[in-house]
């Protein structure tokens, strides 16, 4: 087990380094960092001096190491657009995005898994077919369209929920501003979370459904039935437990996807998170922010993946003896 975890950690580091190379090349070769710092009147000599001072004339591997070193300390330089330190820009906006993503994934899990189990157990029932069809509509409607429709209905026509931003309900805890501590804040979270989660909800539901269908066919379940176990025990004790593995994998991956998909939701709802920051950076070609965002998402993914791997051990006892060879959902 220890060997397995070690291997996963090494792989994670490799992944992070790859992302680092991409981010570094972005930072170094797309748009000249010098141009972004000086005025156009600056002479060539001054530019060269600045270049030396910043270490931009050093060999690329050395520069890369320095970049990674700085990144590890959260230093990504100044944004081309607002001229503020990128690390601070992102940190300020991180809570908004994380809270939104967490809410959305809760929504996905709490609704998606039961719906998947139900449609998997009773695939031919009319309500399953209906859910299945509705879920397809969910995948087919682009998230921004869903957001617009929700705003129109709940904020403008019914006036139940706020239409944009985090609302006035944010509470500042010093290093973290949260929406969770006030009713106003929670209300502001509802529409964006649904918009963000709907796409993933249908994915999870369909995944659980097809896993359930597969498992219900296995001999293992047939034997369980033959032993005279109740439907309930078979369905939840045996079948659901076996579908959990791939669900955990996908759910983990989806949390990463949620953070990235927040870009669209944040744009529609003027939600002041990193996604909105990122889209502004793309429009402005603000490379330092883009590079930092890339590293951040890579880092989050690696962490999530590690957690998922560890969860396998909890869910599947076989892995504890086999040393993790039978990883599901990998390559």
């Amino acid at each position: 087990m220890l060997a397995f975890i070690l291997r996963r950690i090494l792989q994670s580091i490799a992944v992070l380094l790859t992302v680092g190379v991409v981010a570094f090349s972005l930072f170094r070769y797309v748009g000249d960092p010098i141009n972004a710092m000086v005025g156009q009147d600056t002479s060539m000599e001054e530019r060269a001096a600045l270049r030396d001072k910043l270490g931009l004339s050093d060999p690329a591997p050395l520069q890369f190491l320095r970049f990674i070193g700085n990144a590890a300390q959260g230093k990504f330089g100044l944004s081309y657009r607002t001229s503020e330190p990128v690390g601070r820009l992102i940190l300020e906006r991180m809570p908004a995005t994380l809270e939104l993503s967490i809410c959305a994934s809760l929504f996905v899990m709490v609704l998606g898994i039961p719906m998947g189990v139900y449609t998997g157990l009773y695939p031919r029932h009319w309500s399953s077919r209906l859910l299945q069809a509705v879920s397809l509509v969910g995948v087919s409607l682009p998230p921004f369209l869903i957001g617009i429709l929700l705003i129109l209905l709940f904020a403008v026509v019914l006036r139940w929920l706020p239409s944009f931003g985090r609302g006035s309900g944010t509470v500042n805890l010093g290093w973290w501003t949260t929406n969770f501590l006030s009713w106003e804040g929670i209300k502001a979270l509802i529409l964006p979370s649904i918009t963000l989660g709907l796409f993933q909800l249908t994915l999870i539901m369909r995944l659980v459904r097809s896993e359930m269908l597969e498992v219900m066919r296995t001999d293992y379940i047939k034997f369980a039935r033959a032993r005279g176990l109740t439907n309930r025990a078979v369905n939840f004790g045996h079948a659901l437990k076996n579908t959990l593995m791939p669900v955990i994998t996908v759910a983990g991956l989806q949390l990463g996807a949620l953070i990235a998909f927040a870009i669209v939701t944040e744009t529609v709802f003027a939600w002041p998170g990193v996604g909105q920051l990122f889209i502004q950076s793309v429009q402005f070609s603000d490379i330092p922010v883009m590079a930092a965002y890339l590293m951040l998402i890579g880092f989050l993914f690696v962490i999530i993946n590690l957690v998922v791997d560890l969860l396998y051990f909890v869910v599947d006892p076989r892995l504890r003896s086999q040393g993790g060879a039978a990883r599901v959902g990998g390559h």
């Binding site: 705003i151 904020a155 403008v156 006036r159 706020p162 239409s163 944009f164 529609v268 709802f269 003027a270």
Partner: peptide, 18 residues
């Protein structure tokens, strides 16, 4: 003061009293 780029969102926010 909040900048809200999307005009539809801005109008909706005013209507909703945000």
């Amino acid at each position: 003061f909040t900048p809200v780029a999307n005009p539809a969102t801005r109008v909706a926010a005013l209507k909703a009293g945000d």
